[in-house]
Design a protein around this nucleic acid. Structure first.
Lengths: 205, 205
DNA sequence: CAATTAACGTAACGATCGTTATGATACTCG
DNA sequence: CGAGTATCATAACGATCGTTACGTTAATTG
């Protein structure tokens, strides 16, 4: 019972994602949020709780709506294809929207005040989760002969994520999609190959 | 004439560098600054101007005190040595100080409010300058036969900077120096070689 | 149709932001 | 020594931060 909500929560959340994506957690004020979401402050608090809770909701939505290509990439047959897909899709995503470039997982909070430290740590955790799943995928690749026995899967996953993060920084600085894709190709050119037929059965063009 | 300054400007500036390095431009308040620099607010204004001017001074000092290895690296004989030196020194610098990890050039302002936009652009310019000097160095390497004729020097420079920025993000997230060095080595393993004797006359161990 | 309930907009909360009067203090120069 | 000046610490400025009373409006329930 009671009055029914006059705005769509999901739609408002999408708007919040865009604002945080552009300005980061601390760079966003409630004035920014109310303007972008078309919702007055008290409605935000009743629907999402405080700013921190709203950001966490926005981050979760970002991962499921924009970073869904990462779990999808993990299903590709070779580690090289996994990496190629992640790097290329990241280059595209980071330059897709001219008014909020880069990655929310990086833009959200890199260095911040003590007040925002919980958000910074939450972003670190989120990134670490993706990196861990990538490492696990590389371990599987090693077992399959797709990566050499000597491969350091932890380091390889960290390398791929480092390039992705670096591209996000450059995207926020205005780098073109083409330039980021050139960076991605350079990163790919280092990729080790195993000795099974797996990696040769899916040649890159 | 008049009263003489009771604090050392350079020393205070070094303290400001550390604070901005840790919390970024917007994450730092004047309370943080006065506490870290041991100087009251009006003295900061009279010595440095406002917060934006202070940050620009701190950024300049950061480049000359901590990023001096970049111009030094450009003088090394081969492009591979240049890149190796930059990546390894970056990995070290980004993990050197436990209480302000990463890079001021990234931590300073990645995504921010509209008020801090001038600082964000200044950081972009500063990074672009280093990237351009790296590209120019690679062009020279190409002329010397140290890089193949087909090498895309702009993309190579962007790649090296992307890895550096990615390592900075990871350093701020708590990654160890060893892990960052493994990332650097992986990046190095992609490095193209020319066909002159130059690159072979300085083999890596 | 009342009674109840929840979301609405307005407007204000205390705290902190970056910035600056203001008067006291310490130094230089005539 | 005394006039002048620059730096000092205290304290306050208006603006904005994230957050929330409060009275009104619209929907549901008996």
């Amino acid at each position: 019972m009671g009055r029914k909500r006059e705005f769509d929560v999901d739609q408002a959340l999408d708007a919040a994602v865009c604002v945080f994506w552009r300005k980061g957690y601390e760079g966003v004020s409630y004035s920014d949020l109310t303007q972008a979401m078309g919702v007055e402050r008290p409605a935000l608090y009743s629907a999402f709780g405080n700013k921190e809770a709203l950001f966490r909701r926005a981050l979760a939505r970002y991962y499921e709506r924009y970073l869904d290509f990462i779990p999808a990439a993990l299903d590709l047959p070779t580690s090289r294809e996994v990496v190629a897909h992640i790097l290329r899709r990241a280059a595209e995503l980071h330059t897709r929207y001219p008014d909020h470039r880069g990655c929310l997982g990086i833009n959200g909070a890199l260095a911040c005040s003590d007040d925002a430290e919980p958000i910074r740590l939450a972003l670190i955790d989120a990134r670490a989760e993706g990196e861990a799943s990538l490492r696990d995928r590389f371990e599987r690749a090693k077992q399959e002969g797709d990566l050499p026995e000597t491969a350091n899967c932890t380091a390889l996953a960290a390398f791929v994520m480092a390039v992705t993060h670096g591209m996000a920084v450059q995207a926020k600085a205005g780098f073109s999609r083409d330039m980021l894709e050139a960076v991605a190709e350079q990163a790919l050119s280092t990729w080790p190959t195993g000795n099974s037929t797996l990696s040769r059965s899916h040649p890159e063009p």
